[in-house]
Write a protein that binds this DNA or RNA. Sequence first.
DNA 1: ATTCATACTTACAAAAAGGTTAGTACCATA
DNA 2: TATGGTACTAACCTTTTTGTAAGTATGAAT
Lengths: 105, 105
Amino acid sequence: MNSIEITPRCPIRTTLELVGGKWKLLILFQLTNGPLRLSILRKSIPDISEKILIQELKTLVESDLVDRKNFGEVPPRVEYALTEKGRSALPLIEEMRKFAASYTA
Amino acid sequence: MNSIEITPRCPIRTTLELVGGKWKLLILFQLTNGPLRLSILRKSIPDISEKILIQELKTLVESDLVDRKNFGEVPPRVEYALTEKGRSALPLIEEMRKFAASYTA
DNA sequence: ATTCATACTTACAAAAAGGTTAGTACCATA
DNA sequence: TATGGTACTAACCTTTTTGTAAGTATGAAT
């Protein structure tokens, strides 16, 4: 039953590497309802700085959790969207909501 | 549907404060099957240092996710166990397992 | 020529997290 | 008197993460 062994590559650690940290899940969550431009994303997460947002998006793209679409226009227009893999992180967020709710209760 | 608003106290952030970071979920998970002593816990998470382990356990106890039972013996004997609230974090780990599995696939 | 909008970069600084090493306390037993 | 076993602490340091402030590029519109 206790079938996760704590190793350098266990599921918990894999997940933490992909979506751990202060911002990644917040960003993924904002993309739930469809693609968003950087400027919108920034407004929806009020206290993130532009630099950090871009930086986090970059690693999410590298992890194939987020897709970046550059429209090649001027002024620049770029949209970020969840990939399939990104979508598979959403149940995690739902569990966090449940956990936080039961904890607070 | 997109009903989590990103605020200083949204469920995602609450959860991250409680169980975020490199070690807390690993520790909680090790306690799934019952109370463990510090020395055992340490062996089951090979690369954690004693200081960090104690430090993390302390904050988990303060958050009421883990219960600390001191038997008052010499040499010291102390057992750590999940509380009810601690148990409610286990589904989170289960989701992480699923996420990691689908990601790796 | 100047300004505007947007995505992104760079250099730097501060803060948080994580880590190492060497201790302490206690009583039992040798 | 010395040693051993266990949980825990303290001083110090390194690495990682996060933040701030300023600047770049582009072409259209004024």
